[in-house]
Amino acid sequence: MFELYILLLFMILGAIIAVEIKDLLSSVIAVGAVGLGLSVAFLILKAPDLAITQLAVEILCLIILIRATIRRDIPTLNRRKEVVGSIIVLLFIGGFLFFAYLALKDLPSFGHPIMRVSQNYLAEGLRKTGATNLVASVILDFRAYDTLGEATVLFTAVIGVLAVLRRIGRKKVDEVVKEEDE
């Protein structure tokens, strides 16, 4: 699993660059690099369905983020840094990592999962559903309620975007609306 460590180091480096760089377009491109690294990590961890999905989703996400940032002449924020706030946040993150380290000792070690539920799925998936891709048999047959909820969330998000970005029934630029009308 040596290549996985290198890939994670690359992702952490990309994330730090994306957080700390001043230019917004470079930041968006750096987060795209992190997402593509995640796609390769899924491939190494033997999850090809997720690798395909992550690759396609990352490209679409990158297009939308670039659409949001391009042609906005954003003044670079050259305010003085709030030192106290940053130190408090860093202390909080240090505590979080310490307790995470304590909690991770109780997990089963890497590469040896428990798989109490999945034994059943692996043994009887083909006989009960007839699908040879076991991930598809889990998401669409054994746990189809998850997919139904996902469809609901997606529908709500699409309706939310269309409502936020609508063009009908909005105030015009010069129009003055009284208080009681609003």
Binding site: Q54, L65, D146, V153
Partner: peptide
């Protein structure tokens, strides 16, 4: 284990939808 893969497969698309909503 196929179970976490199935959970994350739905989560990736939801993450994209939520990102689009925040960008809007």
């Amino acid at each position: 284990d196929p179970l976490p893969q199935a959970l994350i497969l739905t989560n990736i698309v939801i993450g994209l939808a939520v990102t689009v909503l925040i960008v809007a």
